[in-house]
Amino acid sequence: MTFPERFSNLPEYAFPRLRTLLDAHAPGGEVRAMTIGEPQHAFPDWVGPVIAENTAGFGKYPPNDGTPELRSAAAAWIKRRFGAVVDPATQVMALNGTREGLFNACIALCPEVKNGKTAVVLTPNPFYQVYAVAAQAVGAETVFVPATRETGYLPDYAGLPPEVLNRTAIAYICSPSNPQGAVASRAYWVDLIALAEKHDFQIFADECYSEIYRHDAPVGALQVAQEVGADPERVVIFHSLSKRSNLPGLRSGFVAGGPRSIAEIKQLRNYAGAPLPLPLQKVAERAWGDETHVIENRAQYIEKFKVADEVFGGMQGYKGPEAGFFLWLPVANGEAAALKLWQQTGVRVLPGAYLSRDVNGTNPGQGYIRVAMVAPINDMRRGLIQLRDCLYE
């Protein structure tokens, strides 16, 4: 039997790769996992009761697109948070986690050919790995665009050659960015939307970290698109309850965009989707309607930002994140630093190169490690001090 080689040339996923690097070596102290962006703050105390009240829903097939109540709750949140207006019936679809949405939207919306040539999908570099895998699944050419200190940790898509932009079908952008915590300004969104209008491509805005920030709430892509009067199909946004509400195990998010785009994504869901069980949709509906727990959660992260600034404030090259919950720390070599840290302290971090791709012999994540600030604050403080003393003293 022969198998397709569509994904055979993908690099190993980041976390199995990390296990290969570290697990043959004994930790140098109490293990502190600071690798995965899995929130550890408490989720709202009403989650269990809502599930219990709706357990009969496990006996029914859930609606593929999300219940009308859930889609209305998401649309109402978009209006409150961003001032953007979407029709919950035609412009919102519930997701079984945004990774599903970010992948399947590319399957549903990316053409095989653009202007007579292979379609291009743009992605920042470093990036959330599902972007590139989605592009590869549809046979598109992936163009990795550096998101470095020199570019404000956001990709400069406007700097690409016209030949590439004219073939571009989709541009992924993450704001606040994972791993660097950079926030796209309104001016950045205006310029990117204008570029997309000029070259007729769609923007997939991964905004999963939008509710974790230090100062001002990040501007949203759909918000700006509506303000400037862009084509309603130009921007597709993705949001999640994993970070906002500390519910990564709920596997709940939503996608919103133009009616034609959402119709295509819904059509794919009809055949290949995995809708959220009804009791969990009830939890998601409640979560999108409640901001109290979000404000409390953000306050905890603000205190963590302060701790990171105290620990690394005098370190050359340190830049505290604007938003999100990762530190993107400069080192000579990410793999060597992660291995040294593990062997000498037991602190476990992710080499930045595992989130990036080599382009022309250069990997923009090579000189970094990513550190997740998700543990309880005192545990996190101890881990950061150990990291500083091991790698920077």
Results as ranks from 00 to 15, higher is better:
V190F: 08
D191R: 12
L192T: 01
A194H: 04
L195N: 11
E197Y: 02
E197Q: 08
K198A: 08
H199Q: 02
H199Y: 11
H199I: 06
D200W: 04
D200R: 11
D200S: 08
A205P: 12
E211N: 14
E211Q: 15
Y213F: 09
Y213A: 05
R214C: 07
H215M: 12
H215S: 15
A217E: 08
P218G: 03
P218S: 03
A221C: 10
A221E: 00
Q223R: 06
V224Y: 00
V224N: 03
V224T: 15
A225S: 15
Q226Y: 08
E227G: 04
D231C: 12
E233F: 05
R234K: 12
R234I: 06
S242T: 11
K243M: 09
R244T: 15
S245V: 12
S245Y: 08
N246W: 11
L247H: 06
L250H: 03
S252C: 09
G253D: 14
F254T: 03
F254P: 03
G257C: 07
G257E: 11
G258C: 03
S261R: 04
S261H: 10
I262Q: 02
A263D: 07
A263L: 05
A263F: 05
E264F: 04
I265L: 12
I265P: 03
K266I: 11
Q267G: 10
L268V: 08
N270V: 03
Y271C: 06
Y271S: 09
A272K: 08
G273E: 00
A274W: 13
P275Q: 10
L276C: 03
P277Y: 12
P277R: 14
K282T: 12
E285I: 02
E285H: 00
A287I: 05
G289H: 09
D290M: 07
E291I: 12
V294H: 00
E296W: 11
E296N: 14
N297G: 07
A299Q: 13
A299R: 14
I302N: 10
E303A: 08
V307M: 08
A308T: 04
D309S: 14
E310W: 04
F312Q: 00
F312M: 01
M315S: 09
M315N: 10
Q316N: 12
G317P: 02
Y318L: 03
Y318Q: 05
K319G: 00
K319T: 02
G320C: 05
E322F: 03
A323F: 04
F325M: 13
F325Y: 12
W328L: 01
L329G: 00
